[in-house]
Simulated scan of single mutants.
Amino acid sequence: MMRRSFLTAVGLSAVGAATAPTAAPGSGGAVAARPRGLLALIGSYTSSNPAGRGLEIARRAPSGALESAGVVDGVPDASFFAWSPDHRFVYVTNERPDGSVTAIEVTGHRPRVLNSRSTRGAGPTHLAVHPDGDFLFTANYTDGSVVVHRRDADGSIGESTDLVRHPGSEPHAHQVVVDPSKRWVISVDLGDDSVFVYALDHGTGELTEHQHLQLPTGTGPRHLVFHPDAERAYLVAELRSEVTVLAWDAEDGRLTPGLVVGTRRDGASGENYPGEIAVSRDGRFVHASNRGDDDIAVFAVDGPGLRPIGNTPAGGNWPRHFALAPEETSLYVANQRSGTITRLSRDPDSGALSPSPDRYDCPSVAAITFHG
């Protein structure tokens, strides 16, 4: 079952000074004026109803509001982003039954699609570039697999070097990341209630399973993020509305579950499915989105654990994804069902969020990313 169907059933970036995108929505084919300053890349589902625009770019005004700056053609069902280490290239999942990933160059005057490659699976939802820049990893949600591609010298996506399938009766790989030591590739599987740690052979581009961390049945782990100290990680569970603190031993390549905290505000009821999780650059705060409650949970990092601070309304319906602005004084929320990106002001000292009037319309929005 495709990822979006499942959820229905249950309830650029700062490209330097000059970038000239393709035609802006509603511009009648005219090329938008060349924007300057911090840009955002926004992905949306072109096969949804209402149809999204795929990959578009927006400029951030001095006030913090996003302003439309154009659409990059040829990137359907853009649902997640990963940057190359030098931030000259961005890679996008095309979340379709015949899954693919697309490479885009953002160094010139116009974002340029380099190529696309099959993910050898269906419904790719997440991807990551190895910090050394030599490999691209993509998680295929629908059939529970992770595919490896080489990155060519020009930033394009090379041949696939491996495909690993998760075990279990209904695996659904939802995320793939590289640990801070660069030694291990980690995949989170929502359907199998598992996290897999793989060793990567840089010569062959092949993955070898090193740890299979089995979580309680019905957890539904979705996304994992490492703390800046590289000694722990935070795992958000879609089906239990929880965050699990994981100790991380890079030498042994092993995750160990610890404290579990809830993502919902006191008294919250009804269905809820957390979406994204992120840790602040200073390592003091963790944010997680709640789809159903439609808010953003904030936690303070408290020793080895987490302490809930509060929940702030997302300003839209079904916050699938969010991104902290480079300065971390704003948090931009991609609300899939309401088709909006809302901005929450953020206090870096306290981690607290507060609503703002800024709203950007984007039908069936899936994800947003900034450069920097």
Rank of each mutant, 00 (worst) to 15 (best):
M2Q: 14
R4A: 12
T8Y: 11
G11Q: 09
S13G: 14
V15F: 04
A17I: 05
A17H: 08
A20D: 09
P25I: 10
G28F: 10
A32L: 06
A32E: 08
R34C: 12
R34H: 01
A40L: 12
S47K: 12
S48D: 15
N49M: 09
G52M: 08
I57Y: 15
R60T: 15
A65W: 00
E67H: 11
E67D: 12
S68I: 05
A69M: 07
A69Y: 00
V72T: 15
P76H: 13
A78M: 05
A78K: 08
P85G: 09
P85D: 12
V90D: 03
V92H: 07
T93D: 11
T93M: 07
N94P: 01
N94K: 04
D98R: 13
G99M: 07
E105N: 14
G108K: 13
P111C: 11
R112G: 01
R112F: 12
V113T: 13
S118Y: 03
R120V: 06
T125Y: 00
H130F: 02
D132Q: 07
D134M: 02
F137R: 03
Y141L: 11
V146L: 11
V148D: 01
D154Y: 05
S156E: 05
S156R: 09
G158V: 01
G158R: 04
E159N: 05
G168A: 06
A173Q: 06
Q175I: 02
V177A: 07
S181Y: 03
G191R: 00
D192K: 00
F196N: 09
D201H: 05
T204F: 03
E206C: 14
E209C: 04
E209G: 01
P221E: 01
R222N: 07
R222T: 07
D229W: 11
E231V: 08
R232A: 03
R232Y: 04
L235D: 02
E238Y: 07
L239Y: 10
L239G: 00
S241K: 00
E242R: 06
A247T: 14
W248Y: 11
P257V: 04
L259M: 15
V260P: 00
R264H: 07
D266W: 00
G267A: 10
S269H: 13
E271H: 13
G275N: 05
V279W: 01
D282L: 11
F285R: 03
R291G: 10
D295M: 01
I296R: 01
A297Q: 07
A297V: 05
A297I: 02
V298K: 00
V298M: 06
G303T: 08
G310D: 06
P313D: 09
A314K: 01
G315A: 04
H321K: 11
H321R: 13
F322L: 07
F322N: 07
A323H: 10
A323W: 03
L324V: 03
L324W: 08
T329N: 14
S330Q: 14
T340V: 14
I341L: 13
R346M: 10
S350D: 06
S354F: 01
P355R: 11
Y360S: 02
D361Q: 04
D361E: 14
C362M: 06
C362I: 08
P363A: 13
